[in-house]
Design a protein around this nucleic acid. Sequence first.
DNA 1: TCTGGGGTCCTAGGACCC
DNA 2: TCTGGGGTCCTAGGACCC
Length: 397
Amino acid sequence: MFLHVDLDAFFASVEQLDNPDFLGKPVIVGAIPGHKRGVVSTASYEARKFGVHSAMPIDQAYRLCPQGIYLPSNMRRYREKSHQVMAIFGEFSPDVQQMSIDETFIDLTGTQRLFGPPEETAQLVKKRVLEATGLTVSVGLASNRYVAKIASGMSKPDGFFYVPIGQEQAFMESLPLKKVWGVGEKTLAKLYSHGIHTVQDALKTPLSVLEGFLGEASGQFFYKAVRGMEAATFREAPHSRSISAENTYEENLTDRYTIGTALMDLSQNVMFRLMKEDWKSKTVCIKIRYYDFTTTSIQETSQRYIASAEDLFQRATELFDKRYNGRGIRLLGIGAMNLEPGQELVQQDLFDFGQERQHKLEEVVLQLKTKNPDLPITKARLLSKSAKANASEKGED
DNA sequence: TCTGGGGTCCTAGGACCC
DNA sequence: TCTGGGGTCCTAGGACCC
């Protein structure tokens, strides 16, 4: 049996925990009202009563809930709290799979003798987390991860939902199609247009038909999903990894110098994370989203590993120039793809003395910043915005 | 109501090879 | 003269999730 544990309204709950004045009040973590182009990251359950939810434009949230407490996200703090919770799960099973900052699978195979039947273990987990951290969680229990994941969403917050063995398909049949995990807006529309409006409809549809209009992989995924069968997604190790940074600007960018500065800022961001987490990469990707939301990306793999933020910036600039069509830009992103472990760059070629010096310089800066995150060391060109950037640990849901 | 940021996986089409 | 069938690798875009 598997537990899926989900921290309730995680970011908002942490803020309420850290500031008891906020308890019982509508707390909204994300952008600050009045800022253009921002959204809600997490809304407390009190705020959800007003109709506020994740990914909602912040000004819309404000109209629905002007009395709300609006806070910027503090990822450092949430990560800290998340680690605390994850450590507790380790007490219950050797097989714990963290899916995101606020979600985890716990494999209960073989834990029966220590903790009793899975239903009791689930309650024990909830109790331990609350006692140790003050946070509530919602727990799903089922014979596979896929069903456990959906089950945990059935009785939020502070909930528990159990799907007994043999009941997996019946459970799926009780759900509306849009609650089938992995079915989003586009897939839902496709299903409707093929006359599939319910899980029951889906169960009557042959695999070959689903593959025909959803594609092979998605067809197979969906066929299994509606039967409450484990989807491979949760098991396999990820194929490739990537690290990226992107930013949406309050005003459209058109001016070359401003664009350059933005690319430099993103390059530094990505490179420092690459160094901190010990990855190397030869593939650079950039993303441009224009004012009308049309989005394009371009990527290039070179022979040599990215050696420094400066190096990354140059590659990104080249890609940008190849693709840019002169229109106003609302978002820019830079990513390093196909990451390989280990950071030592081997001897790349005979002429990389400059690269090596730059790399070492950046390493020193990174070390200083790791020791003291508020230290205002940055490239002169980024200086004017460094104070702002300092506070902008960006949000997640 | 104009729509964040960080990811992963899949697909289609082109290049190239035998 | 206008054409096979297989395979792999790469890129751009799309869908989805938290």
